[in-house]
Simulated assay, not measured.
Amino acid sequence: MGKLKFLVLLVVLIGIVSIGLADVSYPYLSQYGPAIVNWGSNVKYGGTLKIILPDGPLQYSLNPFMGNNSTLPTSFIYESLFFVNLTGDVTNMLGTSYKWTDNNTQLDVTIRQGVQWSDGVPFTPQDVVFTFNYLKANPSIDLNGIWSSANDLVSVTASGDTVIFKLSQPNMAIFQYLVGEPIVPEHIWSKISDPAKYTNPNPVGTGPFLFKSFDQPANTVTYVKNPNYWMTGRPYLDSVVVTSVNSNDTCTLALIKHEYDMSNLYIPGVEQTYISKDPKNNKIWWPILGNNHLILNDAK
């Protein structure tokens, strides 16, 4: 597809907010896996991560199922079972272990204990079961096509602290989509009859941050630290502020002035335009824009 166009400015703080980074090479990984780095005892608590994006006017919607570049980010609020990076490394989130059984037609996921939703209600395996069956009952929000006949998913049930995904035939390629789906609380979403149109103005999640406010004239959304987050000692930050503007040029200028810490945008001639302005602090990361899969047909 030619030269990748999107750049992400990475700062150390992105790891601090416990967002997964691909190919983390630090020798001191945490108990959760490669995406959650153990930064040691020299990390300072506090501060705000300021993100600027060239996505134009934002819509006041925090629906994790229907999110896109024009809606408010929800990845700070909602979590999935695992995080899978580009090399296939798995980091434990709301799931703590998994195994394929029954000739790879059943995926058993052990669910983390002691987690609370941000409103204080305990998180349970039944929330996971509800989320997936909710997608089945409302195909308009199943944007990954998890329940498509092509993916062979038959049922999602719970037994004790284990959630069981049953398939009609082996299809291990569905793993990243199953474990990457944001999990929502049954006690909130079971009352929503049309989730595709629900803006979710008061989101309740298990993630490291809570939604605080959306300043529509400033096109800025603010998230604050979840004091009851299940991951001990995280997040380090007090808040995250995301602002959206109308152009890449506006983003670039703001980054050069160090008015913001991070962005996801295209910068022409990035070495000269951006990095050379402050080589010590101005860093880039080239992400992969899509996944390529080679699936062998061993049935014929």
Rank of each mutant, 00 (worst) to 15 (best):
S25Y: 05
P57T: 01
Q126V: 06
L143W: 15
Q31E: 15
Y45C: 03
T71I: 10
S97F: 08
L107G: 04
F130R: 02
D119I: 06
L62M: 14
N92Y: 05
I14G: 05
G33Q: 12
Y78M: 00
N104P: 13
G88I: 11
V11F: 00
L72H: 11
I14D: 07
D89S: 08
Y26M: 03
Y60K: 02
T91H: 09
L107F: 08
L49V: 06
T96W: 03
N151P: 14
F83L: 07
N103M: 11
A22C: 02
N38C: 13
T105D: 07
N63M: 11
V43W: 11
S41H: 13
N68F: 12
K50L: 10
D55A: 02
L21S: 05
A137R: 14
P27H: 10
Q126P: 01
N38T: 07
D127T: 09
G120F: 08
S80L: 00
K44L: 10
V17L: 11
V115R: 00
G95I: 06
I111M: 03
W147E: 13
F132K: 04
P122L: 03
I77T: 10
D23V: 04
S149L: 15
P73S: 08
Y98W: 14
S118L: 02
L53Q: 09
N42G: 07
G33M: 13
N85E: 11
G56L: 10
F83D: 13
F130S: 03
M66W: 10
N69W: 12
P125Y: 03
N85L: 09
V128I: 12
N68W: 13
Y78R: 00
V24W: 03
I16N: 05
G33T: 11
N104K: 12
T131V: 13
Y26G: 07
D102E: 07
I16P: 04
E79Q: 14
F130Q: 05
T101V: 11
P125H: 04
P73N: 08
T87N: 09
L62S: 06
D89R: 06
A35V: 09
S148I: 15
S97Y: 09
I19P: 01
V43T: 14
S80E: 00
Y98P: 07
G114E: 00
V43R: 12
N38L: 12
K50C: 06
G20K: 11
T110K: 02
Q126M: 06
Q116R: 10
P73D: 09
K50G: 04
S118V: 00
K99W: 02
P73V: 08
Q59F: 10
G33I: 11
L94R: 02
